[in-house]
C-alpha cells in the first residue's frame, strides 16, 4: 500500500524516512524526502486552522474532527497521495501512497488511519529505548523492520 512513511520531529527535522521496494538508490531517497517535505506546509496549515477554531470556541460541528490526531489526505500529486498524522507531542507522521499502483489508487481512509495509528504505537515503543535521546534520528533496526512489515502487510 504505502510506498513511504516518515517520522518528522518537533522542529521539522526528519527522524526516520523509510520506503519499500528494491530501490535504495540515492535518487529514490531524495524523491522520498521531497515528497514528504511537500506535505509539511499543508500539515502546518491544517494545524493552524485547528488552533484558531478552538480559540474561537464556537459550537463548530467540525471541531471534534479537527482535534483528531489523524489529519487525513494532505496533498496529492499525479503519482502520489500524502496522508498526515500529528501526535499530541508534535511528532508528525507522514504516509505516502502511490496512485499509479492498483493497490494504492483505491485505498480507503480507514486503512490509512489504522496504519498511522500503528505507526504511532511503534514510534512510542522505539522512543522508550533508553539509549535513544529525544530529537535524535531513529536508527533502530527493529523499528525499521516493524515499519517495513507494516507497509507490506497493508498491500
Amino acid at each position: 500500500m504505502a510506498v513511504c512513511v516518515a517520522v518528522i520531529g518537533k522542529d521539522n527535522s526528519p527522524l526516520y524516512i523509510g520506503g519499500i521496494g528494491n530501490d535504495t538508490g540515492t535518487d529514490n531517497e531524495l524523491s522520498r524526502q521531497w515528497l514528504v517535505h511537500t506535505a509539511l506546509d499543508a500539515l502546518e496549515e491544517r494545524l493552524a486552522t485547528t488552533n484558531t477554531n478552538n480559540a474561537a470556541a464556537g459550537t463548530n460541528t467540525a471541531r471534534a474532527d479537527l482535534r483528531d490526531l489523524y489529519l487525513g489526505l494532505l496533498y496529492s500529486t499525479d503519482t502520489h497521495k500524502i496522508y498526515g498524522y500529528v501526535t499530541n507531542t508534535r511528532i508528525k507522521l507522514v504516509l505516502v501512497t502511490s496512485s499509479t499502483s492498483p493497490s494504492g489508487s483505491n485505498i480507503r481512509d480507514a486503512e490509512v488511519r489504522t496504519a498511522l495509528r500503528r505507526l504511532h504505537a511503534l514510534y512510542a515503543d522505539a522512543i522508550c529505548n533508553p539509549f535513544h535521546l529525544p530529537g535524535d534520528q531513529i536508527t533502530s533496526p527493529k523499528f525499521d523492520k516493524q515499519v517495513k512489515s507494516l507497509m507490506l502487510n497493508n498491500v
Partner: peptide, 20 residues
C-alpha cells in the same frame, strides 16, 4: 525527566489534541 518524556508519548496516544 527522561521517564516523564517517554511516559507522555505513550499516555497521550489515545487522546485528542489539547486545546491550550
Amino acid at each position: 525527566f527522561a521517564a516523564g518524556y517517554k511516559v507522555m508519548e505513550r499516555l497521550t496516544r489515545e487522546w485528542s489534541r489539547f486545546k491550550d
